[in-house]
Structure formats: structure tokens, C-alpha cells
Write a protein that binds this DNA or RNA. Structure first.
Length: 163
DNA sequence: GCCAACGTTGGC
DNA sequence: GCCAACGTTGGC
């Protein structure tokens, strides 16, 4: 059991997950039952694969607000479930409906995300201005992925210096 | 609303 | 497998 615990700690990962606050803001997530929301609507294979194949319960999450007046990190969260099918892919009335997905072979998987706390807003411009963060995947030119890995260094820097 | 950049689709 | 056309993302 100790070995399992140590391996789990070693495998601990960090992520940045984008959400449009008009849809789900950090406040919405904090107000949800158990402060937990299903991360619906991801329709990009790379982002899906992170949720389906790589994320583990307890992984740290930077909750990022995108497509809004003040884009930036708005809170801290954590991965709160193992992967399971995104229900919205089966709903013809959902904007995330995928006619090619079936319950027998779902195409889109998600995880639950539990909001831990709101932070001061760390604006995108401030992140770009920080030399320590210049390697962050989400800041790379042309990056559009809504879920990106964050290194332990980047995570620590953001927590200690920016939040 | 603009537009750069990227991802997906589908004809060949 | 190539690649042009199209759709989407997301900051500004």
C-alpha cells in the first residue's frame, strides 16, 4: 500500500483547464453540489485523451476563464473522478451532441472537476509577462487546446507568486 | 467583428 | 495519404 501511495504521488500531475465563465465559472463550480462539475463539451481528441488516459483523481487544476472580458486563471480545482462518457454527446438538443457517438461506443469522455477555491484573477497578460512561465503550453503561439499540462515548476510558481 | 492558427473533413 | 476547404478557438 505504501508503494502504491508513493507511485500515486510521483504520478501527480497538474493541468490548466479552460472554461467560458458564461457557461461554467469558478463561482458556478463552487456553488455546485460537492463543488463538483462534469467537464462537459470537450470535442477535441487531444484534450479528451488527457481526461480519458492521463488524468488521475487528485491532480491539480488551474481553473481558467476564457472567451471573456478578462481571460485568466480564476481559481484552483482538482480532478475528482475517473473518466466516464460525456452525456451531452447523446443529447440531440445539446450543442455538444455528436450523432456519431453511441452509448455502446461513446466518443467523448470526461472527468469531474471539484473547485477548491477562487483566487485573485491572474490575467493572461500577467502570465505572458512572467519569464518563469514562458514555456507554459497554454501560452505557446497558436495554442488552442482547452486542457493543457502544467509542470510542477509552473504550478508552484503560480501558486506561490501569483495567487 | 477581425483574424491568426489550428483541427477536421472529405474528395481524389 | 495528400491537401484544400471549411469550421472553431480565443485573444484583441
Amino acid at each position: 500500500m505504501l508503494a502504491v501511495f508513493i507511485l500515486a504521488k510521483i504520478a501527480m500531475r497538474y493541468w490548466l483547464m479552460k472554461s467560458e465563465p458564461d457557461e461554467v465559472s469558478i463561482d458556478d463550480a463552487l456553488a455546485a453540489p460537492d463543488q463538483t462539475v462534469a467537464w462537459t463539451g470537450v470535442r477535441n481528441y487531444q484534450a479528451r485523451n488527457f481526461m480519458r488516459d492521463v488524468m488521475q483523481i487528485g491532480d491539480g487544476v488551474l481553473f481558467y476563464h476564457s472567451s471573456c472580458p478578462q481571460p485568466g486563471i480564476a481559481g484552483l480545482a482538482e480532478v475528482a473522478s475517473t473518466p466516464y462518457p460525456d452525456e451531452t454527446q447523446f443529447d440531440p438538443h445539446s450543442p455538444y451532441y455528436d450523432p456519431k457517438a453511441t452509448r455502446e461506443s461513446p466518443r467523448w469522455m470526461l472527468v469531474d472537476v471539484r473547485a477548491v477555491r477562487k483566487t485573485r484573477l491572474v490575467p493572461l497578460a500577467e502570465m505572458r509577462a512572467a519569464p518563469a512561465l514562458e514555456g507554459m503550453q497554454v501560452l505557446q503561439k497558436g495554442s488552442r487546446l482547452s486542457i493543457t499540462p502544467v509542470t510542477k515548476c509552473e504550478w508552484n510558481y503560480i501558486l506561490k507568486r501569483m495567487l
